[in-house]
Design a protein around this nucleic acid. Structure first.
Lengths: 232, 232, 232, 232
DNA sequence: TATGAATGAGCTTTCATTCAT
DNA sequence: AATGAATGAAAGCTCATTCAT
């Protein structure tokens, strides 16, 4: 009576949970949270309606689960990425690029993350607390480090700065989702970083930040970008 | 067949429409769009359920109507505000301040604007098009003017810049709504503008904006957000 | 204070009642009783919604009023028509022709009469009693006369006979309404009468009834009719 | 994913659909289509309101389903009945008898069939097309056969004849429903057939049908309808 | 573990009718 | 007599959730 294949079953269980997650993301990205029925998700995941309730408490819990999964992945990826470099400014760059890269790589996921997860105050609060707060804490830590190293003006508030950075990046992502994704989201990282990091910089020491220099390398692509932006 | 009291009735009609709008904002701010029933709105507006449908096609149209009303007010106010000054940088500052002032003055309105109006892709698209596009066009226009006058670096993309500015301000507003509004929203205008305008600026003329200097005076209380916010 | 124009007002009142009747027939013929709102009728009659209730107790009463009006007209016309001839068989012919002529002359009226007035048991009962009973009584009386004069077999039951005649004529009318009225309804009178009167006749005295002879005069039109019928 | 008890469930499903049909017929016969709520039908069928929608798309589809079911049964019964005899006239007699027998055996069904299924033009059209057309085609075919065998006058139009026959039978049925069914409906078959078949006949071979002779035996009780009807 | 038929609360919306003007 | 804005009861339908199999 003792299950000898416990671990295999465990894997299958995780697989099925994952399958339901994936299905939910696909269906909800197209129909929205309230426009999607539990039956639709079940059908897309190729399980029975009732089976969903073996893995999730209710429809809402499913959405929350998706959020937590996304955030866990984002954070662990973010942590490993910033470990690769020592320079705080470079860390910020990498985080923003990863953020936009991840969303830009999965349109449905981006749609869920930018819109469906925020469909009411309750979700928004949950969204802005817990996991997202970790994200902000990491960013704030880096900003403080940069301030200590004289790369960012000492007088700016790290919390506000993190908000501004996130807000700008978030707006880029949302806009990309709503614009039927007809341009590369990750390409928005550089111009965004240019402006904000420049705004944060201590310009008297070094008139142009490392970012600005890196940006300068992009060179003539800027014209493309501007053209693209205006063609929307 | 002709109404003798046409004008009076017309006024009453507008008043009632306004009353329903107000009621909807109050109730939806607390319960969310899907958590609010038409009956609840009707009761809050002190009209019968059916009366709502004399003024709005359906529940969704009611939300759309609120959005249009808000945006019309914001835009007309914004236009009159930027006419008062000639300097483009000053115009941007005033717009941001007005934006945060308006939302900060009505918590329920801010909640509707920041969250409920965006509860699905359909609304988001409507939100980002039409009226909001006017808003962006105005901001872009000012940015271009500032570039021509040498106040903003010529190489930044006005479209992206407008997005960044809006994203930062929007994030400030959303955060304020989710944080149970325990600090002054409009006070977020200055630090936000400081960073972004600084990032946009041609730093050789004026190394530090007046805002940055004012900010610097606040000193070292940066750890405490509320203090920071209120100290502005 | 005494109305000197009482009679004129009375006329206007009747006119308005008539106008509402007409409007109701037009609108209901297209949308059906339940598919038509009181407002639609009011608008078509160019009166306010509330005005309808000055002339009718409720929506149902309006339909009943239409029925009574139609029947009164049909019966009075029928009575005057049968007075013009003495022969009972000829009377029956004239009644059937009048019946189909009246309905065939007004498509909307036919639609109301054949379908909307019968939309539930309650109306059907009212329909088959009162006014329609007068109609049947007249037909039965003529059938009895024809039996006394040896034109119709004495053993047939006048009540059943009247039902059969009405049923056949009624089916013709209903079919015409449903078939988008692409043929002449009154043309159905002769072949219908041919079969039924022939079935009622005392064929040993006169192998062909007067009707059959009259019908023979139609001659070659029969081919047209058959062709038309089959083309449906 | 595969149901092990598929066949049993399938049977139960059909049974439940049937149960809902029955319930709908009972309730609608008393209250009419518009006078009956979905909840009433569900309660009568002893299922939940929502269960109805697992078997029918909407309230209207339920009515349509009933119609199709009735017609399928009528037509298959009709086909088997007319195969039992070779004589076309006898076939017509049997069809009419079956028609009135079926309706006369279930008062509620008759009520639905004669009245509720025809409650607006849309239903009438659906009623007169599709299934009912099959019925008419069968009757027309028999009439043509009878014409070829010299039993029905060659000059009568089969289409019109079928309409007259149906109209007469239909009126009998409707009248029976409205008359609180205080006599036997199937007894109306003989006198109806007597008149119409006599009207269609080629009277030189057999001056009087067997039906007419049988009818003649009833004698002089013709004043009393019930007696007449029951004496058949 | 998995199923999916069944549930029934709860929603939006309609519209005949009223009544203050 | 005429108006038409306001009413609110009432209905059809959906769908998250349950539970017998």
């Amino acid at each position: 009576m003792v299950s000898k294949t416990g671990s295999i079953r465990e894997i299958k269980k995780i697989e099925k949970k994952q399958r339901i997650h994936e299905a939910a993301i696909r269906v909800m990205a197209r129909n929205g949270y309230h426009g999607t029925t539990v039956s639709q998700i079940a059908k897309a995941a190729k399980v029975a309606d009732g089976t969903l309730y073996l893995y999730f408490q209710n429809k809402d819990d499913l959405l929350v689960g998706i959020f937590d999964e996304i955030m866990d992945r984002f954070i662990s990826e973010g942590l490993s990425v910033i470990e690769e470099v020592a320079d705080p400014i470079e860390k910020l760059k990498r985080i923003v690029e990863l953020h936009l890269h991840n969303l830009g790589a999965d349109e449905d996921l981006a749609c869920i993350f930018q819109i469906e997860l925020r469909h009411n105050v309750h979700h928004m609060k949950r969204f802005s607390q817990s996991k997202l707060r970790q994200y902000f804490n990491i960013v704030e830590r880096i900003i403080r480090d940069a301030q200590e190293q004289g790369q960012i003006r000492p007088e700016v508030n790290p919390w506000i700065t993190a908000k501004i950075l996130f807000g700008a990046v978030d707006e880029m992502a949302t806009n990309w989702v709503l614009r039927t994704r007809d341009y590369s989201l990750v390409d928005m990282a550089k111009p965004t970083l240019d402006i904000i990091l420049n705004g944060l910089g201590t310009h008297h020491e070094e008139p142009r930040s490392a970012v600005a220099i890196a940006e300068a390398e992009v060179g003539d692509h800027r014209g493309d970008l501007a053209a693209e932006a205006q063609s929307q």
